[in-house]
């Protein structure tokens, strides 16, 4: 049996393959079968609509060229926006796949390695039960950060500038530039640009805690080079601390600092500013989290 043609054909070839398929694929398939798969139309939510309409306001000409003008009547109006938003999502998804964004960005938050703090709530199965996760875009590599909570974290114009030339916002970024999403300059996204921005803004827009800003505890250890590089900045903040503005400048130890305060921008904990900070246990989020980071003040 172990060396015969039929043994190998039926047991190893077919039998073991089917066994693995049943246990590794069919079981989760059946387990999640009761979660209905959402269509694109069902995926549109007020958060996303807000971002989509924001695109129309910011880039009126490009938007009109891509989607036309919204009709007059209120009811039709709503239907029209939803329809166009769905189209943008579909095209954006196709670009995301076609450009291989998913080979540099994952779309799931693991319950380990402090990912929750960096990106937000751990991913749940139901979030993936929709048409735009066919095939699922979990991803296996992170050259850049996870994107499944990206929606609302950055403004549309931030994304526009970033896609046009990533290193103008994020120094030394290895992310490729995508000038073909634009008609010549970062303030003129074309249909592709509008679509990919809609897609990125959709990611996580269904979450309750939306948008989600990094809320991480800063490592107590200063990075040697950041201490040096930030010497000047720290000096400035030291002054601020002396002037009684410590609440704004203190390092948010134990507090959600929002994405305005990544480690590099914060005085290292052994600088005077840190010691001067009285409110180490208070939430700094209100003051620190800019909902609309504009290109120039991008926290990088």
């Amino acid at each position: 049996m172990f060396e015969s043609k039929s043994g190998i054909f039926y047991i190893a070839g077919i039998g073991f393959f089917v066994l693995a398929f049943v246990s590794n694929a069919l079981v989760p398939w059946l387990m999640y079968n009761d979660i209905p798969e959402k269509t694109v139309a069902e995926l549109i939510n007020p958060n996303l609509r807000y971002q989509f309409e924001d695109l129309a306001r910011r880039y009126p000409e490009a938007f009109e060229a891509a989607y036309g003008k919204p009709p007059g009547g209120d009811a039709e109006h709503d239907v029209w926006w939803n329809e166009k938003c769905g189209d943008a999502l579909r095209v954006g998804h196709k670009i995301y796949v076609g450009e291989g964004c998913w080979h540099c960005h994952s779309q799931f938050i693991r319950p380990v390695s402090n990912e929750e703090q960096r990106w937000g709530p751990v991913s749940r199965s139901a979030e993936y039960q929709n048409e735009l996760q066919r095939p699922v875009l979990f991803g296996t590599r992170r050259v850049g950060p996870d994107l499944c909570r990206e929606g609302g974290r950055r403004s549309n114009d931030w994304h526009a500038v970033h896609f046009f030339k990533p290193d103008s916002l994020s120094q030394e970024s290895p992310m490729p530039e995508y000038p073909w999403f634009f008609d010549g300059s970062a303030d003129k996204p074309n249909a592709k640009g509008l679509a990919i921005m809609t897609y990125v803004q959709w990611l996580g827009s269904w979450q309750e805690s939306y948008p989600y800003y990094e809320a991480y505890v800063q490592s107590a250890l200063p990075k040697p080079e950041s201490v040096e590089a930030d010497a000047e900045a720290a000096e400035g903040e030291e002054d601020a601390a002396e002037e009684g503005m410590a609440e704004d400048a203190e390092p948010a130890v134990e507090t959600p600092a929002g994405d305005a305060a990544p480690a590099d921008d914060m005085p290292a904990s052994d600088t005077p500013a840190a010691e001067a900070a009285p409110a180490a246990e208070t939430p700094a989020a209100e003051g620190a989290a800019p909902a609309e980071a504009t290109p120039t003040e991008a926290p990088k």
């Binding site: 590794n24 694929a25 079968n33 199965s125 993936y128 066919r134 095939p135 979990f138």
Partner: peptide, 9 residues
Amino acid sequence: SGTSAGAVG
């Protein structure tokens, strides 16, 4: 789609 598709993938 979704998670089960991930398992198959």
